[in-house]
């Protein structure tokens, strides 16, 4: 049923306001995240060092080492990685390096998680 005529400029304005308004409103309420790397307030997700499942491929070796209080050298040695590998190397890039240099390593973020789970339980295991 037709109720009232709407001015086309009002209509255009309302379309833009409703669309952007919902988005800005959600942002204002902290209900917004454009990346798995940030929380809903847009802050970078930091490792807590409590649950290895929180580790992601975009995190660096150094971040993991610091959060779990394990020397970087120990992680590198455990996975047979080159000892000169920088702590800033992202986990997903470590996989690439292993493949490109044909290294004898089974490194993957998942294997790192499993290794850390056992390590944080007080056991030291060979990742192989």
């Amino acid at each position: 049923m037709l109720l009232a005529r709407i001015n086309k400029y009002v209509y255009i304005l309302l379309v833009i306001i409703i669309f952007l308004g919902v988005i800005q409103g959600a942002k204002g309420l902290g209900y917004w995240s454009v990346s798995g790397k940030t929380n809903s307030w847009g802050k970078r997700i930091e490792l807590t060092g409590r649950d290895p499942e929180e580790i992601r491929g975009w995190m660096s070796l150094g971040e993991v080492a610091r959060a779990y209080n394990i020397p970087l050298e120990e992680i590198l040695a455990a996975f047979n990685l080159p000892p000169d590998l920088s702590g800033q190397t992202l986990l997903r890039d470590v996989e690439k390096i292993v493949w490109e240099r044909n290294l004898n390593s089974n490194f993957s973020p998942q294997n790192l998680r499993e290794w850390l789970k056992l390590k944080t339980r007080g056991k030291t295991v060979d990742p192989d």
Partner: peptide, 15 residues
């Protein structure tokens, strides 16, 4: 996908 996708979807549905 992220929370932003859901929010933009809600904005689209409202529009």
């Amino acid at each position: 996908t992220h929370l932003s996708n859901v929010v933009v979807l809600i904005a689209l549905l409202a529009t």
